[in-house]
Design a protein around this nucleic acid. Structure first.
Length: 796
DNA sequence: GCACCTCGAGTTCC
DNA sequence: CTCGAGGTGC
């Protein structure tokens, strides 16, 4: 063996110090400063060094003992049988090696049963031991360093999953049960929800394991009792049947777990037996698939040789058994540092803080950005530039900053504050009272909002301009080729190439060339073509593309269906818009406000002038015209005291709002309207705004009446009014296509299943929506049923 | 006025 | 996908 270099020796010493420190923090202070994955990595590095250079093994090396001394707050308990720690495997190869080592060691007399394993999930909680004497729970302790831990009996007694007395017969005189205290995910979420609502009085927990550890180490068991902890048993320690010698223990680990279950101890239902390395790896894969759906956190699986006699024969290396190994899942948590906290300006001006991270590999991808959502979230976490943070990428795809490692905060950091001015345009950033989000007030004069507006306009569900991405839009805006979405339809090939040249020049990038040294221009041709194609569109897409606040895809569809014409929508006063179902005060006002701005009207004019064609324009539907009575519109104006009933009195026999305005108060008094209500209406009409609103509403109502078909014109599709929900993957068409087709037949496609849903179309691997549909007894179609229906009802 | 349901908007990586 | 907030029915 090669002699260790001074460098290697120094590295080993460094690792020992580092590990001792983290271990102390973890076991004694309950304040983990690095995720387990990092700890494991350091430990494995040290193990590797020590394996190569045994002379470097120091008596105080963490590889020679596990954990640190318990803190003084709880009484120390010596474990009669030491609590084990397991070796870790991270790859299938390491598991195969583990199995091979066992086979080699047992070699001559190894029969098939020696290769049987009890396989179990590895709960991410806190290992404890419970002592039962004559069936009575007498003492419980944490694992501590494996030799002795802390007496947390009063706290453990509060955990309902832990039986205070064993059930059944043949209970040993002394029984020590090993298991894991954990916090179910749902309970963890609920706890944090409450904590977050408490305005900082209760701190949220970083993760369920931390929550379990913290809860168990409460000095006051009443606090522990309020924490929703649970427990699973997975092994036994000391056992003594005393004189009752006919109660011999089972001969395999799996049967022992069954026995523990008989005694009333909770044992996970996920425990199985597996045979050989393949069996273990198959279990690993299956549990891995379920991992995100489990009600508790696990960080891997454990394989244990099932036959206890074989376990005894294999014995230990140091404190880790040769007969068991923990096979860990790839980390879904990592630490990294916050290089910067920037704010992104969205289409609506929303200023959302985001952490720029030193790249880390977590959950299968490299993460460099993580949203911090809003000011409250930053304050809650107290994330600062320079901080070391724990990044998590769990079942959901989007990475989040789970917490800050306060211990590693560099000196001189400042709490982060939302800047007062927009970093892009310098406008004021304001937060509406009671709102969660701060907004840049710059509107379209803010370059960021302009770019986002154009991006939204071009997006697939809006005008669907293929190939117009954020980078290109940035260039077009920065060099003045595009100031509003209408300018897109003015662009020429020359403009695009010139823009590209300017941005290449600015960024110092060399232009891409094709064969013959010519500058690549195909993209520009394609883009011009895509822009041209987008000219022909539908009213719903057009309205959605404009990016009116609160008008998303479905509101745009509603507007398009009811008014049918852009000329109408762009002039409607809000009380008229409000008459449409699903459009309330806020949305109606937002639409009215959008079109009240001359700049926006100009953009619409220019779009139409540049050849944008709304192909599905139609007359307003009759239902709209019938819904729009003067009394209805008056009631929707929210004039103080003028309620639905009063507005009917005002509007009795009146042809229009103007007629109402002309009517003398005497007439109403005669009809029994209270004087103060009449006064309120008169006052409203007297204001310039009120007067103008009356006139606009009258005009709008006239326009709609004149535009509406006289006959019953509208054709009802075969699925009129039916609410569909699509879920899972369809093989013959995309979900969007299916949605469009169903809508063309008159159906409405909703996002989630509820009582109102008529049909759920379930494709391949449908998930929770299908379950919910079954639960509510809603009609479910598979793809074949859908296709059959569509074949019988061709699109009109 | 409150509870429930939708819809809108923002987000990450490849 | 998830949160926040708007719309509507009770």
């Amino acid at each position: 063996m090669k002699k260790a270099s001074a460098e290697t020796a120094a590295r080993a010493e460094f690792l020992r110090c580092e590990l001792a420190e983290h271990s102390h923090r973890y076991h004694v202070l309950d304040e983990p400063t690095i995720p387990d994955a990092d700890y494991d990595r350091l430990l494995r590095e040290l193990e590797a060094i020590e394996a190569a250079h045994p002379e470097l093994i120091a008596p105080d090396s963490p590889t020679q003992r596990v954990g640190a001394r318990p803190s003084g707050a709880f009484a120390e308990v010596r474990h009669e049988v030491p609590m084990l720690s397991l070796a870790n495997a991270f790859t299938g190869e390491e598991v195969a090696e583990f199995v091979r080592r066992i086979r080699d060691r047992l070699d001559l007399h190894a029969d098939a049963s020696a290769m049987q394993f009890s396989v179990e999930p590895k709960f991410d909680g806190l290992a404890i031991t419970l002592r039962y004497e004559n069936g009575l729970f007498v003492r419980g302790a944490t694992r501590g360093d494996g030799e002795s831990g802390e007496d947390v009996t009063p706290n453990l007694r509060t955990i309902k999953a832990i039986p205070l007395r064993l059930r059944g017969t043949n209970v040993p005189e002394v029984l020590e049960v090993r298991g894991e205290v954990y916090m179910p995910r749902a309970a963890f979420e609920k706890y944090n929800e409450v904590a977050r609502a408490s305005d900082g009085k209760t701190k949220p927990m970083v993760n369920p394991r931390n929550g379990a550890a913290g809860s168990l180490r409460q000095l006051d068991p009443r606090i522990t009792a309020q924490r929703p902890l649970a427990f699973y048993a997975y092994a036994i320690g000391a056992v003594d049947f005393g004189w009752n010698s006919d109660g011999a223990l089972p001969t395999t680990h799996s049967r022992m777990l069954a026995r523990l279950r008989d005694w009333g101890l909770p044992v996970s239902t996920l425990v199985e037996t597996a045979s050989g390395a393949e069996g273990c790896l198959d279990y690993y894969r299956r549990i891995g698939e379920q991992r995100d759906a489990l009600p508790f956190d696990i960080d891997g699986v454990v394989y244990k040789v099932d036959v206890l006699a074989v376990q005894r024969e294999l014995g230990f290396v140091g404190r880790t058994p040769r007969w068991a190994i923990a096979h860990k899942f790839p980390a879904q948590e990592q630490t990294t540092t916050v290089e910067d906290i920037i704010i992104n300006i969205g289409r609506t001006g929303a200023a959302t803080p985001a952490a720029k991270l030193k790249p880390v590999f977590v959950g299968g991808v490299t993460v460099t950005n993580a949203t911090l959502h809003n000011i409250d979230q930053v304050a809650r976490l107290d994330v600062r530039i320079g901080d070391t943070v724990i990044v998590r990428r769990a079942g959901d795809v989007i990475p989040e900053v789970a917490g800050v490692v306060i211990a590693q905060r560099p000196a001189g950091t400042q709490p982060w504050r939302m800047p007062e001015r927009c970093p892009v345009c310098g406008s004021q950033i304001e937060r509406e009272e009671g709102e969660a989000i701060a907004r840049c007030m710059g509107g379209l004069s803010c370059a960021a909002q302009r770019i986002q507006a154009v991006f939204h306009f071009a997006s697939r569900r809006a005008m669907d301009i293929n190939g117009l991405g954020e980078r290109l839009i940035e260039g077009l805006c920065d060099f003045g080729f595009v100031a509003s979405v209408a300018d897109l339809y003015r662009l020429t090939l020359v403009d695009l190439i010139e823009m590209k040249r300017l941005s290449d020049e600015r960024d110092g990038t060399t232009p891409e060339t094709v064969k013959g040294g010519k500058i690549a221009t195909k993209w520009a041709e394609n883009l011009i073509e895509a822009i041209d194609r987008s000219r022909r569109t539908t009213l719903a897409r057009f309205l959605y593309a404009l990016g009116i606040q609160h008008v998303g895809e479905s509101t745009a569809k509603v507007l398009a269906a009811w008014f049918g014409d852009i000329g109408l929508v762009r002039t409607m006063p809000w009380p008229i818009l409000k008459a449409v179902p699903d459009i309330g005060f806020e949305v109606a006002r937002a639409i009215d406000h959008f079109f009240a701005q001359p700049g926006n009207q100009r953009v619409v004019d220019e779009l139409l002038a540049h050849g944008v064609i709304i192909a599905d324009a139609h007359r307003p539907i009759m239902k709209l015209s019938t819904a729009l009575t003067p009394s209805r519109v008056l009631a929707d104006m929210d004039i103080p005291r003028v309620t639905g009933k009063r507005s009917e009195q005002f509007a009795a026999n009146a042809e229009s709002l103007a007629a109402i305005a002309r009517t003398s108060p005497k007439t109403w008094r005669a009809a029994g309207v209270p004087a103060d209500t009449i006064e309120a209406l008169q006052e409203f009409i007297a204001t310039p705004d009120g007067h103008a609103l009356f006139a606009r509403c009258d005009d709008a109502m006239r326009l709609i009446r004149e535009g509406s078909p006289k006959d019953g014109g509208e054709t009802a599709g075969p699925l009129d009014g039916k609410i569909f929900v699509l879920t899972g993957t369809l093989t013959s068409m995309s979900r969007d296509e299916a949605k469009e087709t169903l809508e063309a037949l008159g159906a409405k496609a909703a996002g989630s299943v509820s009582k109102k849903t008529d049909v759920v179309v379930a494709g391949e691997s449908a998930g929770s929506k299908l379950d919910k549909a079954r639960e509510l007894g809603i009609e479910v179609w598979d793809e074949a049923r859908l296709l059959e229906f569509l074949a019988r009802h061709p699109r009109l």
